[in-house]
Design a protein around this nucleic acid. Structure first.
Length: 424
RNA sequence: GGAGGCGUCGCCUAGUGGUCUAUGGCGCCCGCCUGCUAAGCGGGUUUGGGGUGAUACCCCAUCGCGGGUUCAAAUCCCGCCGCCUCCGCCA
């Protein structure tokens, strides 16, 4: 949720942000009008409520007939209070609802436009020239089947489309990758966390996932809980309604979790293999920092992502995501996309978002200021590893015989130097 | 799943319908006093919001959360959540 006071102060900044995102600007005037009504209604209620309280004290001290008369008058006041309170609550709710519908303010410098209007910041590494090496690369699923690592058929049998089994070398590679990412995060000072993956509507809404993309999340109707699509949700909720002490530096957590996504809007897209599945695992970084340090922390998260990408030795590029493709909560987002040889294009492996104070406002996460008051913190998140990374690792490190060389950094965690085809 | 108990400010705690502004202590902050770190004295110390874009002042809400009863609710009633004790069931 954006800052109501900031919207009052500079409505044009909010309008500009909405334009950049391709969203409705009219909401700004609607909020301003609703806020005006809210403040009037609140003043009315508070004035009469004050009268009622003062009157109540006189009732308490009176006795006999005098008391009877005072109670009669109190009934009238009580009726008024009830009505004014309801009106104030309604006005309050209206502002709240409108304000919640506004996505985060886009940061300065974010490229305008939609999904295809990203800016490439940097390209790292060089794709292998398989033609020069004299063989046609196999795609990740073909390799996965050769290696006994990925089983989509049985995934579909047991759970339906877009579900897979990782078996043998596939399971070892996945677990090794996650362990490696987690070990690095711990080395950088992150607190490792295994969070719950079922969360309340408050947490899902507070992190911004029940807005435009609500149809992407699984909901358990019987329990009114949601399955998280990322551990960002429980890691943000971890400190909900708390006042943090950030004088000693940012609070950083690295969550490992299974993630669930309905992929409702992507029918027919990436149906082969494990590029886009309903369930995968992920190691996610999450930082709580003073609002003024958000940009600096964002750069640090990006740098840490790149360290792990470098360690798995796949070519990748860094993009600055355009305004129209930011999530509800993000003010700025950088993605790292790995080269996938058989697709001849880059695919997202990591994504780091600065949510500035947007999530913190909704979730009530503040810090104590030097003056003694409280102020919302900034929250940021970034990917350190996901199941999708297996796609890039398998394809980029394959050999002509179908074996796959495990990146050196992962070998101690995977327990294998080379993944070999299995006999059937 | 069943029975009982509990939930008050950072911590502990008093408070069974109105009696001043929810007690009191610890801790913490400010000041005074004091011949070193102690003691004593005085004041302050939840959070959110409104007046109001204000470090002062005034007001409203806030006693786990949400409803209800009442002129009036921390207090009475209902639902939910959490913790503790016990019972049952289960990996």
């Amino acid at each position: 949720m954006i800052d109501l006071r900031a919207l009052r102060d500079s409505p044009d900044a909010v309008r500009a942000s909405q334009r950049l995102r391709g969203e409705d600007e009219g909401v700004v005037d609607a909020v301003l009008a609703a806020d005006e009504r809210r403040r009037t209604a609140l003043s009315d209620f508070e004035r009469v409520r004050g009268e009622q309280k003062a009157h109540g004290k006189r009732v308490a001290q009176a006795a006999g007939e005098e008391k009877q008369a005072l109670v009669a008058a109190a009934k009238d006041l009580s009726a008024q209070v009830k009505q004014l309170q309801a009106a104030a609550a309604e006005a309050e709710a209206e502002v709240e609802e409108l304000l919640r519908s506004v996505p985060n303010l886009v940061a300065d410098g974010v490229p305008p436009g939609g999904e295809d209007d990203y800016i490439v910041l940097e390209e790292v590494g060089t794709p292998r020239d398989f033609a020069a090496e004299g063989f046609e690369p196999r795609d990740h699923l073909e390799l996965g089947e050769l290696l006994g690592a990925i089983d989509m058929g049985r995934g579909a049998k047991v759970s339906g489309a877009r579900f897979s089994f990782l078996t043998g070398a596939g399971a070892r590679l996945e677990l090794g990758l996650m362990q490696y990412a987690m070990a690095r995060a711990v080395e950088w000072g992150f607190v490792p966390v295994v969070p719950p993956t079922l969360v309340t509507p408050q947490m899902m809404g507070g992190t911004g996932f029940l807005g435009a993309h609500a149809e992407e999340v699984y909901r358990l109707d019987a329990d009114d809980l949601y399955l998280v699509g990322t551990s960002e949700v429980p890691l943000a909720g971890f400190h909900a309604d708390e006042i943090l002490d950030l004088r000693g530096g940012p609070l950083r957590y690295a969550g490992w979790s299974t993630c669930y996504r309905r992929e409702a809007g992507s029918h027919g897209k990436d149906t082969r293999g494990i590029i886009r599945v309903h369930q995968f695992t992920k190691v996610e970084m999450f930082s709580y920092v003073p609002a003024a340090e958000a940009d600096a922390e964002h750069q640090r998260l990006l740098a840490w992502e790149r360290e792990v990408l470098d360690a798995v030795e796949v070519p990748y590029r860094v993009i600055d995501v355009a305004a129209g493709d930011l999530g509800t909560s993000a003010a700025r987002k950088y993605d790292c996309e790995a080269w996938v040889p058989t697709q001849g294009r880059h695919r997202e492996l990591t994504s780091t978002s600065s949510c500035t104070t947007f999530q913190a406002r909704r979730l009530g996460i503040r810090e104590r200021t030097a003056e003694g008051s409280t102020t919302p913190v900034a929250t940021l998140n970034g990917t350190l590893a996901t199941t999708r990374w297996l796609v890039a690792i398998l394809e980029n490190h394959q050999r002509e015989d179908g074996s796959v060389v495990v990146p050196a950094a992962l070998r101690p965690y995977v327990g294998l130097d080379v993944l070999e085809p299995v006999r059937r």
